[in-house]
Design a protein around this nucleic acid. Structure first.
Lengths: 143, 143
DNA sequence: CTGCATCCACCGGGATACTG
DNA sequence: CAGTATCCCGGTGGATGCAG
């Protein structure tokens, strides 16, 4: 028995491999910082445009508008306009949008739990860098 | 009864708001498509550089190298070099890296389950766009 | 085979100014 | 208040070439 070299657990292989391809588009849509921030803000209930803007602080009008619009397109956020003067617009998570909070929480847990480990790993890596840097393999002269 | 307008569930408010800030750095690191693809590929066991490259197909050397290096920095992937000729390098998920699969799965589930809903929402939105487009509010003339 | 270095095109996103 | 339109810069990432 035993073949040449391919130890793939074929059972799960395609699952994990193909599986991750499916996450990409979703991740591209909902994975950027502004989207996460906006969804996070709206998770407390409906909000007006400027409320969100002030809450997030650092986001540009442009990005807020774009983010909200794309969220609306994807059916994650609903937009309600009151044609009063001055105008008022409320944004609110849809059921779909709220359902997104679940995986987001999962990510959040992981982040909180493992952030320290990652930072530690970074520093450790930096040190190793320096050490091996002494006998660094330099092909071309540093300019 | 009923007050003016602020229905905030203050209990969870800061949690959700502050909470999402913590996810940002993590998301920035592990949230891009290449990282996800690489982690997904490695979830089946250790792999060599070119194995990954061929498996992912579409990734440039540059991006693969950069992604792997940053993953190594963060302690998510371990790198083992065999100074043979030709050289051989194995990449493998660390425990930390494997732990990442959990939230990734969560995201994957959500993606698979709600992708259709999002697509549907998109098309619906496109239609509404057209309709309201007739009485579109155009301030400046389109050049 | 594994990987760095360089050049370069693209566009994400900030600042600003203007409209309804 | 709630956006829209424009300019513009920095970073992301692809293609190529070269070295251990």
């Amino acid at each position: 028995m035993s073949d040449t070299n391919i130890p793939v657990r074929a059972t799960e292989a395609s699952d994990s491999r193909e599986g991750c391809r499916e996450v990409i588009p979703t991740l591209a849509r909902i994975g950027d910082k502004w989207t996460v921030m906006v969804v996070g803000s709206l998770s407390n209930g409906p909000m007006r445009y400027n409320q969100i803007a002030r809450l997030i602080e650092g986001i540009s009008q442009r990005m807020l508008t774009l983010t909200l619009k794309s969220l609306e397109q994807d059916g994650l956020v609903s937009r309600t306009m009151y044609p009063t003067i001055p105008p008022r617009v409320d944004y609110e998570l849809t059921d779909l949008g709220r359902s997104l909070i679940v995986p987001l929480r999962s990510l959040h847990s992981w982040a909180v739990e493992h952030q320290p480990a990652m930072l530690a790993a970074r520093e450790e890596f930096a040190k190793r860098e320096q050490q091996t840097g002494l006998r660094q393999t330099r092909f071309t002269d540093p300019k």
